Measured scan of single mutants.
Amino acid sequence: HMTFVALYDYVASGETDLSFKKGERLQIVNNTEGDWWLAHSLTTGRTGYIPSNYVAPSD
């Protein structure tokens, strides 16, 4: 899985979304859904959809 880092805080707007904090590391499970990607937080262990423009590839 690709690892990304959150650029901003995001508060989930629905049950399927994943809240995260700036700097949180996320594994992308599925990024074929356009602007919303299914991600797994390496910080909280939770999985949900995130806005793709809130994250950047982590080196």
Score class of each variant (00 low, 15 high):
His1Thr: 11
His1Cys: 14
His1Phe: 13
His1Ser: 13
His1Arg: 09
His1Leu: 12
His1Glu: 13
Met2Tyr: 08
Met2Cys: 15
Met2Thr: 13
Met2Gly: 11
Thr3Ile: 15
Thr3Cys: 11
Thr3Gly: 07
Thr3Gln: 10
Phe4Glu: 01
Phe4Asn: 02
Phe4Asp: 00
Phe4Trp: 13
Phe4Arg: 05
Val5Met: 07
Val5Ser: 04
Val5Leu: 07
Val5Cys: 06
Val5Ile: 14
Ala6Trp: 00
Ala6Leu: 03
Ala6Asp: 00
Ala6His: 00
Ala6Lys: 00
Ala6Glu: 00
Leu7Cys: 08
Leu7Glu: 05
Leu7Asp: 03
Leu7Ser: 03
Leu7Val: 07
Tyr8Val: 07
Tyr8Glu: 09
Tyr8Lys: 08
Tyr8Gly: 05
Tyr8Gln: 10
Tyr8Pro: 00
Asp9Gln: 03
Asp9Leu: 01
Asp9His: 03
Tyr10Leu: 03
Tyr10Thr: 01
Tyr10Trp: 07
Tyr10Phe: 08
Tyr10Gln: 01
Tyr10Arg: 05
Tyr10Asn: 02
Val11Leu: 07
Val11Cys: 12
Val11Thr: 12
Val11Asn: 12
Ala12His: 04
Ala12Pro: 05
Ser13Ala: 13
Ser13Arg: 14
Ser13Asp: 08
Ser13Phe: 10
Ser13Trp: 08
Gly14Arg: 15
Gly14Trp: 08
Gly14Ala: 13
Gly14Asp: 08
Glu15Gln: 11
Glu15Thr: 13
Glu15Tyr: 09
Glu15Asp: 14
Thr16Phe: 15
Thr16Pro: 05
Thr16Leu: 15
Thr16Arg: 13
Asp17Met: 12
Asp17Phe: 13
Asp17Val: 06
Asp17Trp: 07
Asp17Glu: 15
Asp17Thr: 07
Leu18Gln: 03
Leu18Pro: 05
Leu18Thr: 04
Leu18Met: 15
Ser19Gly: 08
Ser19Thr: 09
Ser19Gln: 05
Ser19His: 04
Ser19Ala: 07
Ser19Lys: 03
Ser19Pro: 06
Ser19Tyr: 03
Ser19Glu: 06
Phe20Trp: 01
Phe20Val: 08
Phe20Ile: 09
Phe20Ser: 00
Phe20Lys: 00
Phe20Met: 07
Phe20Asn: 00
Phe20Arg: 00
Lys21Trp: 05
Lys21Pro: 01
Lys21Glu: 08
Lys21Thr: 09
Lys22Ser: 06
Lys22Tyr: 04
Lys22Leu: 05
Lys22Met: 08
Lys22Pro: 02
Lys22Glu: 06
Gly23Met: 03
Gly23Ser: 04
Gly23Tyr: 04
Gly23His: 05
Glu24Arg: 00
Glu24Gln: 03
Glu24Asp: 12
Arg25Val: 15
Arg25Ala: 09
Arg25Ile: 15
Arg25Gln: 11
Arg25Phe: 15
Arg25Glu: 10
Arg25Trp: 14
Arg25Leu: 15
Leu26Lys: 00
Leu26Met: 10
Gln27Cys: 15
Gln27Asp: 06
Gln27Arg: 15
Gln27Gly: 05
Ile28Phe: 03
Ile28Val: 10
Val29Ser: 06
Val29Asn: 05
Val29Lys: 08
Val29Met: 15
Asn30Gly: 15
Asn30Arg: 07
Asn30Met: 10
Asn30Lys: 09
Asn30Glu: 11
Asn31Tyr: 14
Asn31Asp: 13
Asn31Lys: 15
Asn31Val: 12
Asn31Ala: 14
Thr32Gln: 14
Thr32Cys: 13
Glu33Trp: 10
Glu33Gln: 14
Glu33Ser: 14
Glu33Ile: 13
Glu33Pro: 09
Glu33His: 14
Gly34Gln: 12
Gly34Glu: 11
Gly34Asp: 12
Gly34Asn: 12
Gly34Pro: 15
Gly34Cys: 10
Asp35Ile: 09
Asp35Ser: 11
Asp35Ala: 11
Asp35Gly: 10
Asp35Asn: 11
Asp35Cys: 10
Trp36Thr: 06
Trp36Cys: 07
Trp36Glu: 03
Trp36Gln: 06
Trp37Met: 06
Trp37Gln: 03
Trp37Leu: 08
Leu38Asp: 01
Leu38His: 04
Leu38Tyr: 11
Leu38Pro: 02
Leu38Arg: 03
Leu38Val: 07
Leu38Asn: 02
Ala39Ser: 03
Ala39Asp: 00
Ala39His: 00
His40Lys: 15
His40Glu: 10
His40Gly: 04
His40Ile: 15
His40Pro: 00
Ser41Cys: 04
Ser41Met: 02
Ser41Ala: 03
Ser41Thr: 01
Ser41Val: 02
Leu42Glu: 10
Leu42Lys: 05
Leu42Gly: 04
Leu42Asp: 05
Leu42Pro: 09
Leu42Met: 10
Thr43Met: 11
Thr43Ala: 12
Thr43Asn: 09
Thr44His: 03
Thr44Met: 03
Thr44Pro: 00
Gly45Leu: 07
Gly45His: 15
Gly45Arg: 06
Gly45Val: 01
Gly45Asp: 06
Gly45Trp: 04
Arg46Glu: 10
Arg46Gly: 09
Arg46Ala: 11
Arg46Cys: 09
Arg46Thr: 07
Arg46Met: 13
Arg46Lys: 14
Thr47Gly: 05
Thr47His: 07
Thr47Lys: 08
Gly48Glu: 01
Gly48Trp: 01
Gly48Ala: 04
Tyr49Cys: 10
Tyr49Gly: 02
Tyr49His: 06
Tyr49Trp: 15
Ile50Pro: 00
Ile50Thr: 01
Ile50Ser: 00
Ile50Leu: 04
Pro51Thr: 01
Pro51Leu: 04
Pro51Asp: 04
Pro51Asn: 05
Ser52Arg: 11
Ser52Gln: 07
Asn53Thr: 12
Asn53Arg: 12
Asn53Tyr: 10
Asn53Glu: 10
Tyr54Leu: 13
Val55Tyr: 04
Val55Gln: 02
Val55Glu: 01
Val55His: 03
Val55Phe: 06
Val55Pro: 02
Val55Lys: 01
Val55Met: 06
Ala56His: 08
Ala56Thr: 13
Ala56Arg: 10
Ala56Trp: 08
Ala56Glu: 13
Pro57Ile: 10
Pro57Tyr: 08
Pro57Ser: 09
Ser58Pro: 10
Ser58Thr: 13
Ser58Arg: 07
Ser58Cys: 15
Ser58Gln: 13
Ser58Met: 15
Ser58Lys: 08
Ser58Ala: 14
Asp59Phe: 13
Asp59Gly: 15
Asp59Lys: 11
Asp59Cys: 13
Asp59Leu: 13
Asp59Arg: 09
Asp59Met: 12
Asp59Ser: 12
Asp59Val: 12
